[in-house]
Amino acid sequence: TFTSYQLEELEKVFQKTHYPDVYAREQLAMRTDLTEARVQVWFQNRRA
């Protein structure tokens, strides 16, 4: 599960791009204290 802060950050990036590159995902992962893999999976699920 994600915190409301994490979801907010993820959604913010999703609004800009549905396909963030690895750099964007790593920045987001650091900001949200998630792994890059978790961020990647979240985007895959969000796009589905």
Rank of each mutant, 00 (worst) to 15 (best):
L10E: 02
E9F: 05
L34I: 06
T1K: 10
R47G: 03
K16I: 14
R46K: 09
L10C: 04
H18G: 05
V22H: 13
L34A: 03
F43T: 00
D33A: 11
T3L: 08
F14C: 01
V39I: 15
Q27Y: 07
T32G: 02
K12Y: 05
L28Y: 01
T35V: 04
T17Y: 07
A48F: 08
V41R: 12
T17R: 04
R31V: 10
Q40S: 12
T1P: 12
A48M: 12
Y5N: 10
Q40F: 10
D33S: 11
S4C: 13
F2C: 03
E11K: 03
P20F: 03
Y5L: 09
E26V: 11
L28C: 02
E9R: 03
V41K: 14
A29L: 05
N45S: 10
K16E: 15
V13A: 11
T1D: 12
F2T: 03
M30T: 09
V41D: 15
V41H: 14
P20D: 01
A48S: 09
R38V: 14
Y23R: 13
D21A: 04
E9S: 04
T32M: 09
E26R: 13
K12D: 04
Y5M: 08
A24K: 04
R47K: 03
R31D: 05
Y5E: 08
T32R: 00
K16Q: 13
R31H: 06
E8A: 11
R47T: 04
V22Y: 14
V13H: 06
F2H: 03
K12C: 07
H18R: 13
Y5H: 07
L10I: 01
E36C: 07
P20V: 03
L7E: 08
V13W: 07
Q6V: 05
F2R: 01
V39N: 01
L7R: 06
Y23Q: 14
A29E: 03
V13Y: 09
Q40C: 13
F14E: 00
R38Q: 15
Q40L: 14
V39P: 01
K16M: 14
Q27V: 09
V39R: 00
L7C: 07
R25P: 02
F43M: 04
S4W: 11
T17G: 05
R31Y: 06
F14I: 15
E26H: 13
L28S: 01
S4F: 09
Q40H: 12
R25T: 10
R46T: 03
K12S: 07
Q27R: 08
Q6G: 02
R46N: 03
F14L: 02
D33G: 15
E11L: 05
L10A: 01
R38W: 11
W42N: 00
N45E: 13
Q6R: 00
E36S: 07
Y23F: 13
H18D: 05
R38E: 15
Q44S: 09
L34N: 02
L34H: 01
Q6F: 15
L34S: 05
T35Y: 02
T1A: 12
Q6I: 04
V41S: 14
Y5V: 07
T1V: 11
Q6N: 02
L7G: 03
Q40E: 14
M30F: 10
E36R: 05
A24C: 15
T3E: 06
A48D: 10
T1Y: 13
M30C: 09
P20K: 06
A24V: 14
R47H: 05
R31K: 10
K12N: 06
Y19S: 04
W42H: 01
A24D: 10
Q44N: 11
R25K: 05
A24Y: 06
L7P: 00
W42R: 00
N45R: 13
H18L: 05
N45L: 10
H18P: 15
A37Y: 10
Q6D: 02
N45A: 12
D33W: 06
T35S: 15
R38D: 15
E11W: 04
Q15H: 08
E26P: 02
R46E: 04
Y5R: 09
R31S: 06
F14W: 14
L28P: 00
T35A: 05
L34M: 08
N45T: 08
Y23W: 12
T3G: 03
E9C: 07
Y19I: 03
R25G: 02
P20H: 03
D21T: 08
Q44H: 09
K12I: 07
Q15T: 07
Q40A: 15
A37E: 13
R25D: 01
Q40K: 15
V13P: 00
Q15M: 10
V22S: 12
H18Q: 14
L28V: 07
A24N: 06
W42L: 01
L28I: 07
T17E: 09
S4K: 14
F14G: 00
Q40I: 11
H18V: 06
Q27D: 13
V22W: 11
E11P: 01
F43V: 01
K16G: 07
A24G: 05
T3K: 06
S4L: 11
Q44A: 10
Y19C: 10
A48G: 10
T17V: 06
T17L: 05
L10S: 00
E11M: 15
Y5F: 12
Q15I: 13
E8I: 10
T17M: 08
